[in-house]
């Protein structure tokens, strides 16, 4: 992720990266939640019997996350990491926009599924569990008891 050649031009790359990672944690967490929420909206569009009123909440979360992502301090060394998060955000936004337009055929639905899958893959690649960027927050999960 951190680009070595760019890092050489930063006199304190470690500090800058630490600041970036600290600021990125909540944004990364919001992106993972968006994956779940957008997936659920897809499920809804496929099965009208599901009751869920979270569409507005998902759109609000998307807007807030997009703004927070754009405001992150991004040292050159982690440009690629930030790019991956931005790409994930872009894909999730595309799905939300398409869902607002209503019913779709199977091909369009499959395309949206691929977009969410792709966003999830980007987040998986951008995961840095040791820095708190993890797809699943397992700090309070059953397995955390062994620590």
């Amino acid at each position: 992720m951190p680009d070595a050649s760019a890092a050489r031009h930063d006199p304190h790359p470690g500090d800058a990266i630490a600041r970036y990672l600290a600021a990125t944690g909540p944004v990364y967490g919001a992106l993972t939640r968006l994956v779940s929420q957008v997936s659920l909206l897809l499920l809804l569009s496929d099965d009208r019997r599901l009751s869920y009123t979270g569409a507005a909440a998902a759109r609000t979360l998307a807007q807030e996350t997009e703004t927070a992502l754009a405001a992150l301090p991004v040292p050159a060394a982690v440009g690629r990491h930030h790019w991956m998060l931005s790409q994930a955000m872009d894909r999730l936004s595309q799905v939300l926009k398409r869902l607002r337009r209503g019913r779709m055929d199977a091909a369009a639905f499959a395309r949206l599924i691929r977009l969410v899958r792709s966003a999830h893959e980007l987040l998986r690649l951008a995961a840095l569990p040791e820095a708190g960027l993890s797809l699943a927050d397992l700090r309070r999960a059953c397995c955390s008891c062994v620590r």
Partner: peptide
């Protein structure tokens, strides 16, 4: 529903992998 709640209530999502709902879709 839990996933749409504020961060302060994140305890309720412990052990949930967001990919699970994607898999379901």
């Amino acid at each position: 529903w839990v996933l749409s709640l504020p961060d302060r209530m994140r305890w309720m999502t412990a052990s949930l992998d967001p990919a699970s709902i994607l898999h379901a879709a």
